[in-house]
């Protein structure tokens, strides 16, 4: 029984190391596409639009309600202990440090990471990626590099937007349902505002965005087995991206705070 358990742990460890290695190698190959992307800027801009602009409706809804819930829950915790004058500061710090980067990251992992895996997976099983190879076009440069770079760039942009919308959501609940004045909410948020919090949140977003796109590309490229394989890749990309975001969030939190 013990040897069986040890074998299982060994297999899982090897699997994990192989996966990490595959992703790192893909990132290294994509990193050599700098000159190519300068010449083919339209590929990058197209992906920035897909990853960033098209995520705006979903990020808006998630951020608005995240801010609203944060405000309501903070008020629940404060009641009878701390003055509501500090509500703005608490909500703002939670949004900037944790809520916006992580929730935006998870939403983008679901929408973008999975769709990249599905798109590239379909291209793999229908031989479109092989067709690129036969045309002497490097699929890593043409397909992966623009998506990964767009992920690195657009996630921080989305988190900046999410920060604003979430603050609006928090303020609306505080003002309309908790009788906190505008001056009290934003005054306390400003008093306890730290640039470090914003930078830390954006740094998290940078890694979450690049990582999510990288995982989607890596899994998409290795898809096999027709439509069933594409479905499996889509799920795997979402699961890996979500796990990556949560683990990375913990690592960055311990390093940054």
């Amino acid at each position: 029984m013990i040897s069986g358990l040890a074998q299982r742990i060994g297999r899982l460890t090897l699997f994990f190391l192989r996966e990490v290695g595959t992703h790192v190698l893909l990132l290294a190959r994509a990193a050599t596409a700098g000159g190519y992307l300068l010449r083919r800027r339209h590929l990058l801009i197209e992906q920035m639009h897909k990853i960033g602009v098209r995520s705006l409706p979903l990020v808006t809804i998630v951020s608005l309600f995240t801010g609203a819930v944060a405000s309501w829950q903070a008020a629940y915790q404060f009641r009878g202990l701390i003055s509501f004058d500090y509500l703005g500061a608490a909500v703002s710090a939670a949004i900037l440090i944790e809520l916006s980067p992580v929730l935006t990251g998870l939403v983008v992992a679901g929408r973008v990471g999975a769709s990249i895996a599905a798109e590239l997976g379909t291209m793999r099983v229908t031989e479109q990626i092989d067709a690129l190879e036969t045309l002497a076009i490097d699929p890593v440069h043409y397909l992966a590099a623009p998506r990964i770079l767009a992920g690195f760039i657009m996630m921080p942009a989305l988190v900046i937007y999410s920060n604003l919308v979430a603050h609006a959501g928090g303020y609306l609940v505080a003002y309309s349902m908790l009788d906190v004045s505008t001056a009290a909410f934003f005054g306390s948020a400003r008093r306890y505002f730290l640039v470090h919090n914003v930078v830390a949140g954006l740094l998290k977003a940078f890694f979450f965005g690049g990582g999510t796109a990288l995982i989607g590309c890596s899994i998409g490229f290795r898809t096999a087995g027709g439509a069933e394989g594409v479905g499996a890749s889509t799920i795997r990309a979402f699961v890996y991206s979500s796990a990556f975001i949560l683990v990375m969030d913990y690592i960055l939190a311990t390093l940054l705070f």
């Binding site: 379909t122 291209m123 229908t126 031989e127 479109q128 092989d130 067709a131």
Partner: peptide
């Protein structure tokens, strides 16, 4: 020329 043509969708 691929069996399914492999055109980019």
């Amino acid at each position: 020329l691929f069996q399914g043509a492999a055109l980019f969708d």
